[in-house]
Design a protein around this nucleic acid. Structure first.
Length: 453
DNA sequence: TCTCATGATTGACC
DNA sequence: GGTCAATCATGAGA
């Protein structure tokens, strides 16, 4: 409150006394002319109904002859009770120029300059941090590649590759949502800020007619408004950052969190595992293929096989049933494949269908190592024209026959399920012998005595 | 709530 | 870098 306004206020406070209209009180000394029964003017003091241009009619009290402006009506037709009328009266007051200059002087002496010096605030470090973060997360700044860095980092952290595309797209979709909301809100704030600034500036311009308002003051007011709005903006940015952080943590947590694979995925993995029981180490290509089929990552495939190998080895007995189930399953397929292959051999002898068409796995290279294994084991069966996958399934079939029939098939001494796969250092081979588990001579315990723990 | 199954992580080893 | 083995953490069913 300026000194002038304080004075005015004080005058206003005294006004009720004036309203008492004690006899002898000099009327003209008072700037305020009050109307009995109206409390509207109380406290304002600077009422200029008695304007120099004599727009008010004064009446004389019928009894004491005191002049009273209680029924003052502006001559110019404006009802002095309206704000418009009051403003007009104020502008036309004879004292206005003098008051205006006084106000200007006082304003010059007040601490506006001090306040003005504080306006040049350094950029808020928190705001800068938020801006940087939003930029890095792709919320602000160019849309292209927004959030891809975070998604890529997350993918790299999990060891995944392009298999994460589903999660990536999910993450990006949510990030885009946040981005849209952020920009919409930002626009709203900016618009509101501009509107409010315009409104205030209009008000100030209007007020500048009645009181001195320097451009610097307007500037300062605009600055205040902008600061207020920027603090709101900062809240928005903060909320957006929090949302991004939550999204990101959920995204990462979701990857970290254990989720059971789909039944179909487990089926596919189990099929591969049991059909490659002699060497359940899928190549990179096979892993990628499996990952694609199962909609999981390559590292998840690796994890799954790692876990499976260990758990299978640890408890063959428990997996026996499962092994038989998958063996039977693949055996049926294999039988069909063999039949088809034989038929093909008979009809199209020069060319044979490739293995991909016959097995339950259409992995181009998945059978290779199996074939190699066969070779390593001294098996000559790979000479057959059927593909490697079929070979694998034929072996599975043999295994099932062994399991279920309990007789020696005599199919050429395939050593696939024999302890020949055992190696000296307790490698996988010891676990590749489900037949031995049920064989009369060898139980699971004996086979895995080296690894059971 | 408990138990089991299972995917993920970690450290050691080759 | 891949694998093994142990372990953790969580989902799912009883």
């Amino acid at each position: 409150m300026t000194a002038v306004s304080a004075v005015i206020e004080r005058r206003g406070e005294r006004e009720p006394r004036g309203r008492m209209k004690r006899s002898g009180e000099p009327h003209g000394a008072e700037l305020s002319a009050t109307r009995p029964g109206t409390s509207e003017r109380r406290g304002r003091g600077l009422s200029l109904d008695r304007a120099p241009c004599s727009r008010t009619q004064t009446t004389t009290h019928p009894r004491d002859g005191h002049r009273s402006s209680a029924r003052a009506v502006p001559r110019c037709g404006r009802r002095e009770g309206t704000a418009r009328g009051r403003k007009h009266a104020l502008n036309c007051h004879r004292m206005k120029p003098a008051l205006f200059s006084v106000l200007c002087e006082i304003k010059e002496k007040t601490g506006l300059s001090i306040r003005g010096a504080q306006e040049e605030d350094p950029p808020d470090p928190q705001l800068m941090r938020l801006d940087n973060m939003l930029l890095a997360e792709g919320v602000s700044g160019p849309e292209k590649g927004g959030g891809s860095a975070a998604a890529a980092a997350a993918a790299a952290a999990s060891g995944g590759s392009s298999d994460n595309s589903i999660e990536h797209s999910d993450y990006r979709a949510k990030l885009t949502q946040i981005r849209q909301i952020y920009h919409t809100e930002l626009e709203k704030y900016e618009q509101a800020c501009n509107e409010f600034t315009t409104h205030v500036m209009n008000l100030l311009r209007e007020q500048s007619r009645t009181r001195p308002i320097s451009p610097k003051e307007i500037e300062r007011m605009v600055g205040i408004i902008h600061r207020k709005f920027s603090s709101i903006q900062m809240q928005l940015k903060q909320s957006t950052c929090e949302a991004v952080m939550i999204l990101r943590s959920r995204f990462l947590d979701a990857r970290r969190k254990r989720r059971n694979f789909s039944k179909q995925a487990t089926e596919i993995l189990n099929e591969y595992f049991y059909s490659h029981l002699s060497n359940p180490y899928p190549s990179e290509e096979a892993k990628e293929e499996l990952a694609k089929k199962c909609s999981i990552t390559v590292s998840q495939v690796s994890n799954w096989f790692g876990n499976k190998r260990i758990r299978y080895k640890k408890n063959i007995g428990k997996f026996q049933e499962e092994a038989n189930l998958y063996a039977a399953k693949t055996a049926v397929t294999a039988a069909h494949a063999v039949a088809a292959a034989v038929q093909n051999n008979q009809t199209n002898s020069p060319t044979t269908p490739n293995s991909g068409s016959s097995g339950s796995f259409n992995l181009p290279n998945s059978g290779d190592m199996f074939m190699n294994m066969q070779s390593l084991n001294g098996d000559s069966y790979q000479g057959s024209q059927v593909g490697a996958n079929v070979q694998s399934q034929v072996d599975t079939l043999r295994h099932v026959i062994n399991q279920t029939g309990g007789y020696n098939d005599g199919l050429g001494g395939n050593s696939l399920y024999s302890p020949h796969n055992l190696n000296a250092n307790g490698g996988w081979q010891d676990a590749t012998t489900p037949s031995s588990v049920t064989s009369p001579t060898e139980g699971p315990g004996s086979v895995h005595s080296d690894t059971s723990n």
